[in-house]
Design a protein around this nucleic acid. Sequence first.
DNA 1: ATCCAGGCTCCTG
DNA 2: CAGGAGCATGGA
Length: 333
Amino acid sequence: MSFQKTYILTPPAPYRFEYFRKRVESSSNTYLYSIGDNRLSRAHIIGGRPVLVHVSAVETTAAQEAPRITLDVHGAQDEAQADAAADIWRHMLSVDRPLLPFYEKVADDPVMQNLTAELSGLHLLLDSGPFESMILSIIGQQVNLTFAENLKRGLVELCASSIDVADSTHFAFPSPEQIARLEYDQLRPLKFSQRKAEYVIDFSRGVADGRIDLAALETMSNEEAIDSLVKLRGIGRWTAECVLLFGLGRPDLLPAADIGLRNAIQHFWGWDHQPTELEVRAFAQGWQGYESYATYYLWTALGLARAAQKQQKETTPTGRRKNSKIMAEQDKE
DNA sequence: ATCCAGGCTCCTG
DNA sequence: CAGGAGCATGGA
């Protein structure tokens, strides 16, 4: 007895859905997303019940034409629940955020102009909301990405709701209540440090019992929201900024201390040193209103440049041990 | 082996 | 109050 509804999204051009698929694949988010031949699937828990969303897109090769994105929502109890799932996806895919104003804003900088042309149609691809974003960001603190994925998968499989469809299991990201019910000792065997277990569970308990009001972040300025978040144990500025960018989708967030952003500025503008946080702030004056986008494009471009470098190194081998393993790893990127 | 990962807290001097 | 150890593990 379940409700099914299909939504067609037609975001403003330029929009390339391909970037979303690649991002999901490269971050090996297999604990949340399953990748089929022509679609992505993910479960969400809404109103205490899990629903399943299949996402597919028809892309044209014309740069100025946007894709038609289809959302198939299964297992909802009623139309309101299905609509809520569709809203989450509109948010995650940034379909209501045209890119052209950003491109125009940075058009007078040749480096940025080059990047926006290269990555035309790349949108901010977000987490489902501030709670998920916070938990993922806390887990991602300090540790390498592979290890972080193991922790995330372990947490999700430990406490999340799931939907079984055709012998595959789709886990929804756990609700605050589901994580709040855990004890620290349950996360230790998953290789969480004691601290990390405390940060994740304590934050969830705060949200679950109402001490932490994530909805209130919506009406705050970036600085107000960051100030309120960093008061919480385990949450520093970097983590708060991640939540504003990837959880709330703020367009104008500048993570000026971020090592990736500083590396990117040094790399693409040919600085002889890594810019300081202060230098980043001065440098970013020209991005005003679109700092998140500029940052996101620079992270992406630097990632691609690094991958290309790696590939280059690979094609001029000096020794060829473990060839097959290295190839397999490259395929993921 | 050693050092660092898209940090942060807590302890020390 | 700056500076540094410690966290848990994987990859270079």
